[in-house]
Simulated assay, not measured.
Amino acid sequence: MNYLLLFLSVAFGYVIALFLKKRELRNMEVFLAFSGAFLLSITVFELLPHVFETPSKRIGVFIMIGILLQIFLEFFSKGAEHGHVHLHTESKKFPWLLFISLCIHAFMEGFPISEENNLLIGVIVHKVPVAIILSFFFITAGYKRIITLAFLFFFALMTPIGNYISNHYSFVHHYETEITSVVIGIFLHVSTTILFESSKNHKFNLTKMSAVIIGIIIAFLL
């Protein structure tokens, strides 16, 4: 069921994008702010305490590796993980760099998801607005439907595959803390970037601030 929900979150985003207009896309900033706050809160409330059950500076090193990995991936994805898509619409070739970087990000997301935490909800809440924005820009940029669907299909598969490997291959369990720490770093970078970008020009926005607070409260109560 977890695998199906993760896959359908991207499919759901594509369906929504089919009916969106450009002016309606601006409302996604509020949903993005909520998703960033929710993902950050799940990371802080559940993943961080788990990896620091036995405190070690080594864990901090792997968290920093995750942050650096995400920064590196964003050189190629141009920030699509947190709602920014910059494609060269003059060329309709398959955007391989964007695809590979997003797939690595999505693949890593799947590893810490388990019955012991609420990360499944956090990843789904994070994936839906990103899938909507990705799909919308592919559609409006005039990419062939087969390219858009192929991109989204394999992108949707990555997190379930990561989660499957985590659940069914014993060697992963030997490095569970290290892998989770790397993913924490990825989530910290992505979620804080979303929150930073949701307050452009450092102007106070009551709607976005409310969405952030609601996201934190819901994550705490889960």
Rank of each mutant, 00 (worst) to 15 (best):
P160Q: 11
H173A: 08
I214W: 13
F171M: 14
V182K: 07
I184G: 05
I186V: 12
L119C: 03
L6Y: 00
Q70T: 13
A211W: 10
T192K: 02
F62Y: 13
T177Q: 15
I139Y: 15
G36V: 03
A131R: 01
L5R: 01
T43G: 13
S170Q: 08
H189P: 10
G162H: 11
M64E: 10
H202N: 14
I121C: 03
L68T: 03
C103A: 10
G185L: 12
K93W: 08
I63Y: 13
L4K: 02
V44C: 13
V183C: 08
E178F: 14
V125A: 07
V10F: 13
L8F: 12
F107R: 10
L4R: 01
L25W: 06
I42W: 10
I139W: 11
E81D: 15
M28R: 05
L206Q: 14
I194K: 02
S35R: 07
E81V: 01
G60M: 10
F62L: 06
K144Q: 14
V30Y: 15
Q70W: 12
G13A: 05
I124Y: 01
I147Y: 15
H88R: 11
M64R: 02
G36Y: 06
V212K: 05
I124D: 00
E29D: 12
G215T: 02
L152F: 09
E90M: 08
H173K: 15
F171G: 12
M108T: 02
H86C: 01
G60D: 09
E176Y: 15
H84Y: 09
L6M: 01
S9G: 10
P160L: 12
K127M: 07
G185V: 07
G36M: 09
K92I: 01
F155T: 02
L48C: 05
H86S: 10
K208C: 08
F171D: 13
G162T: 05
K203N: 11
V85N: 08
